[in-house]
Design a binder for these strands. Structure first.
Length: 577
RNA sequence: GCCUCUGUGGCUUAGUUGGUAGAGCAUCGCCUUGGUAAAAUAGUCUAAAUAGGCGGAGAUCGCGGGUUCAAAUCCCGUCAGAGGCUCCA
């Protein structure tokens, strides 16, 4: 309960701060209109229409200074209920407030104003009692554009983000945390560790450098091992398909703008944005009996989606990526068991292997949907029941399912606290009909299978980004692109070091040899900056004995028999710890 | 796509009212070395040095136009990136 009060207080504090921001901006740039200014997780924002004035991040300091002056005289907010015509008169200059007044009155909501002394605003309750005393620890953070009411057809407003805390210590530690998070950003670490790069000639298409490719392939290896255990069959499919396929699948109608397109011999081809049509073609290739289902087809084919340029971001939002995609063809009776299998698979990857924090989102039937309501209800019930039985942290997003069926998405936060969808399970009643897929039941009649679209990591690229950030670049041994670095003390040790490298490589251990003519101190520093798991120093002592001086990532220097060490790390790699 | 901002050797960056683009790291050569990184506070010892010394190479200042005697700097266009919005794995 106390926690809840604390949160409510912070919300009020931040919301009050948004009012303060609005007043300061209107003072500095008269004629500016303020739109809405809510508190959000970790802070608040306030939207403005600056008219022709352009402001930049440099102006934030000026605004902050003004805010500190104003707040000195702010007292408890005076709350007033007003009629529609009174409200319209009060805010006659502000088109955004007028629109809100119009809408609120239509919805039958009461109209209220609030005023801490010198700034009247259309607002309901939710402010702190003594702004001049309590509202001290705030900071403006960034400027962004935002459409009025979130609709891209509306005016683009200027949004100023900020945050506020009840104590200076909390504010400082939050700002420090932001700084630290930036260092964990996969785009920063990806560059520092030599994992990935981008080129302006192919925006949104990451290149995995040798070390990045090692990790990428380890992820695929893990998945393939699991596929074998869990009855998946991998296929390899084309990237380019003629327009006719997209007309059948419905993509031509609904997804055309997102597909890269090209012409050859007067036929139009598109790079596939999804694998489902490919897999439907594979399914249609023969006649199926109910005894052969579920059929689990897996595919790592690269996908291309022509996303809007402004949405691209590192590895988390790209134009070219691969999913650990699978389409599972099931009978209605098999649906529940199969979804349970997929949830268990997700648990294995997210909880047991990678230990990521996540929650799930169940999206239910939207207003515009295809298929029978009865089947929808049944599928939704199954999904909800499984989430509940398995005690999986989840929220229900009403009407946010796909038009072809309900879905469960798995959400993870990145270093900058942004949420990303990784795994997804989507039940599909629609595509099987469009492709006229069937199987023969025990009754000798044709039935339509249900397709489960599912991806465990989601896109490998995005998953990669999130584990870089989650491990802060310090990959566990099995995933590490360099597991051991051998450092020589003097040139006379190089020969021995090379032999040791060969020995380790025989056991598939990933080794770097650092035989530069630099001091050992410098080599330690350089190799540690690459977060290598084990650093081995080779000098006279090692050449004379059969022991190794090993520095671990937590800065312990230990001495160990060579064979013993090899045995130990081979075991660690195999067990993925 | 829209709004705001950014773009200078491989990386991090300095560049004032327009007047010959500087540095650190990395890299290359030579010399000298070598036993466990750095930062912060206090202190001790040692040393050539605790990220050794000297020297070298490396930049069409994102790209294309324009203004000007003269453009990294001003103007226009364009591309890419960042933070958001919309959209989405």
């Amino acid at each position: 309960m106390k926690e809840k009060n604390q949160k409510e207080y912070l919300d009020n504090l931040r919301h009050t701060c948004a009012h303060l921001l609005a007043k300061a901006v209107k003072d500095l740039w008269p004629g500016t209109h303020n739109a809405i200014g809510p508190s959000i997780e970790d802070g608040f924002y306030q939207d403005f229409d600056f008219g022709k004035v352009k402001i930049s991040e440099e102006d934030l300091q000026k605004i902050e200074k003004r805010m500190r002056q104003i707040v000195e005289n702010w007292k408890q907010f005076k709350f007033n209920e007003v009629t529609v015509s009174e409200a319209k008169k009060l805010f006659k200059d502000n088109p955004y407030k007028l629109e809100l007044i119009e809408d609120f009155s239509k919805e039958g909501k009461k109209l209220t104003t609030n005023n801490p002394g010198d700034f009247l605003d259309l607002c309901k309750m939710g402010h702190i009692e003594n702004p001049s005393k309590e509202l001290k620890n705030f900071k403006l953070l960034k400027i962004a554009g935002a459409y009025w009411r979130g609709n891209e057809k509306n005016t683009m407003l200027t949004r100023i983000y900020g945050t506020a805390f009840s104590t200076k210590e909390e504010l400082d530690s939050y700002l420090k945390m932001l700084e630290e998070s930036k260092k964990r950003d996969h785009r920063v670490l990806g560059e520092k560790l030599g994992l990935i790069m981008f080129t302006e000639y192919s925006p949104g298409a990451p290149m995995f450098l040798p070390k990045g490719a090692i990790i990428y392939n380890e992820l695929l290896k893990l998945l393939r091992e699991e596929y074998k255990k869990r009855g998946y069959q991998e296929v390899i499919t084309p990237l380019l398909y003629e327009k006719g396929l997209w007309e059948t699948s419905g993509h031509w109608e609904f997804y055309k703008d997102n597909m890269f397109s090209m012409e050859s011999e007067k036929r139009i081809f598109n790079l596939k944005p999804m694998n489902c049509p490919s897999h439907c073609l594979i399914y249609k290739h023969k006649i199926w009996s109910y005894k052969e289902l579920p059929l689990r087809i897996a595919d790592f084919a690269p996908l291309h989606r022509n996303e809007l340029s402004g949405t691209l971001s590192g590895l988390t939002r790209v134009r070219k990526f691969s999913q650990d995609d699978s389409h599972i063809f099931v009978t209605e009776e098999q649906l529940e068991k199969e979804i349970e299998n997929v949830l268990d698979f997700e648990k294995y990857i997210y909880n047991d292997i990678f230990k990521l924090d996540y929650y799930m989102r169940l999206g239910t039937r939207p207003d515009e949907f295809m298929g029978e309501v009865k089947l929808w209800d049944k599928a939704e019930k199954i999904l909800a029941k499984l989430l509940k039985d398995k005690k999986i942290k989840h929220v229900i997003k009403e009407k946010e399912g796909a038009f072809y069926g309900p879905k469960i998405d798995l959400m993870v936060k990145d270093a900058l606290n942004r949420e990303w969808q990784l795994a997804t399970i989507q039940v599909d009643f629609q595509i099987p009909l469009r492709f006229n897929l069937t199987y023969e039941g025990s009754d000798g009649k044709k039935h339509t299978p249900i397709i489960i679209h599912r991806a465990i990591m989601g896109s490998i690229e995005r998953f990669f980004a999130l584990i870089i950030e989650n491990y802060a670049g310090k990959f566990p041994l099995w995933l590490s692109p360099t597991q051991v670095a051998i450092m020589t003390i003097a040139d006379r040790h190089v020969e021995y070091a090379k032999k040791l490298r060969e020995e380790l490589e025989k056991d598939n251990i990933k080794v770097d040899l650092d035989d530069r003519t630099e001091s050992i101190a410098k080599k330690v520093r350089d190799n540690q900056a690459q977060y290598i798991n084990y650093l081995i120093t080779i000098g006279d002592k090692e050449m004379e004995s059969n022991n190794l001086a090993i520095r671990t990532r937590d800065n312990n220097v230990i001495n160990m028999n060579k064979e013993e060490f090899i045995k130990k790390i081979v075991k660690e790699i195999k067990e993925r710890c």
